[in-house]
């Protein structure tokens, strides 16, 4: 049940203190999808988030453009939808 472990990790990250309740026994197919922590770097860059310690000075907009450029070169023309914080 590694997916549920990942969700519990998200709870801990957000400091959420809720119980998990089993509604119905179910097994997810190994043929489709994957645990978020098994994504490739390129997959992470398509919908990832950076908890960035923005330096004072440049605006968020400027910092975002800078990061997009840095990561964009790596993706060599692949259009991505990185959403930096």
């Amino acid at each position: 049940m590694r997916g549920l472990e990942f969700l519990k990790k998200l709870d801990a990250f957000a400091m959420i203190d809720r119980e998990w309740i089993l509604v119905k026994e179910y097994e997810t197919s190994e043929n489709y999808g994957k645990n978020p922590e098994e994504r490739t770097v390129n997959e992470l860059l398509r919908l990832g988030v950076i908890n960035l310690d923005k330096p004072p000075g440049p605006t968020s907009h400027e910092v975002t453009a800078w990061i997009k450029e840095l990561l964009g070169i790596e993706r060599a023309g692949h259009a991505g939808t990185l959403e930096p914080l």
Partner: peptide, 12 residues
């Protein structure tokens, strides 16, 4: 770069 799931980690 954290998985996007972190962005909704605070929701039920």
């Amino acid at each position: 770069v954290l998985p996007g799931e972190y962005m909704v980690s605070h929701l039920p």
